[in-house]
């Protein structure tokens, strides 16, 4: 059985303190897991901020190099990629969607330019009508259209519109794996459901695997097949998403689960008061 992606004892350190300090923290600490090549799935990485989720995403995307261990994508050790061709081919198959769409799009460039550039770079679309067709198809999948965003700048779109554009951009090269780093934390519940439902459809219809990074346990529960829970770089709990989230055993997983605000005014207000009272003690 072959793996689409395999992480083998991956560790990443960052220096802390001054430039010459020898101290470091392990942003990711000895993490291993694998995704099957012939069973596309939604794999959730859950944890509070600073737990190492984004660092993991950056390594999977080949943007950061691990200090220990290996990452293998489709039989290729990501650390051994040297040539430009290899790198382009890898990037077409593994596409990112980032958390903050305001940072992902340069305010001085119209957003459609990013989609055209992706169509050109990874799909060899050279003439304008080809680029526009690929772009419009991808935008339609996320409930937008090229007509709506053509020539507009990031500040002229709302946060949620921009995030849908970012997902559309990632779809253009027909990737095998999408690494989505907190893709729904900036969007409303209805749109959030439409994006996570979209991820489901991508998995089921296009056979794309998705690494879904989030601190939102409710959506993780709703769409993922498997989940790992991270704290300070370490995987503290992992397994079938429903099993783990229905009955978390590690105290930190339990705290995270309890922090999910119930969608009911009385219960939610009580949860906030409880936490303030606990903090005051």
């Amino acid at each position: 059985m072959s793996h689409l992606l395999e992480l083998d004892h991956v560790t990443k350190r960052y220096p802390v303190g001054g430039l010459f300090s020898r101290q470091s923290i392990k942003a990711v600490d000895d993490v291993s897991f694998a995704l099957d090549a012939d069973r596309p799935e939604i794999f959730a990485i859950v944890g509070e901020s600073g737990s190492g989720k984004s660092t993991m995403a950056k390594m999977i995307l080949g943007n950061e190099v691990p200090d220990g261990g290996r990452l293998v994508f489709d039989g290729l050790d990501i650390g051994t990629i040297r040539s430009r061709e290899q790198r382009e081919a890898f990037m077409a198959k593994v596409q990112p969607v980032f958390q903050n769409p305001f940072e992902a799009f340069n305010p001085l460039t119209p957003v459609d330019a990013y989609l055209f550039a992706t169509a050109h770079r990874f799909c060899g679309a050279n003439d304008q009508s080809h680029k526009e067709r690929l772009t419009d198809e991808a935008l339609q999948r996320v409930g937008l259209s090229l007509a709506e965003i053509k020539g507009r700048f990031s500040h002229e779109l709302s946060g949620g519109q921009l995030q849908r554009v970012a997902v559309a951009r990632a779809l253009i090269p027909s990737p095998k794996l999408i690494v989505a780093d907190e893709p729904v934390s900036m969007v409303d519940a209805s749109l959030r459901m439409s994006i996570v439902n979209l991820f489901r459809a991508l998995r089921d219809e296009l056979k794309v695997s998705i690494i879904y990074i989030t601190h939102d346990l409710a959506t993780a529960y709703y769409i993922s097949d498997r989940v790992i829970i991270m704290q300070k770089g370490v995987v503290i709990e992992s397994g079938d998403a429903r099993t783990v989230l229905d009955n978390p055993t590690h105290p930190y997983s339990i705290a995270l689960k309890n922090a999910v605000l119930p969608p009911d005014p009385k219960a939610a207000a009580a949860a906030i008061r409880l936490r303030s009272a606990a903090a005051a003690r």
Partner: peptide, 17 residues
Amino acid sequence: TALDVLVQQDVLGLIKE
């Protein structure tokens, strides 16, 4: 919106307070 669930609860408590 950009905060994780634990910090979010703290900040909401803070605003209420």
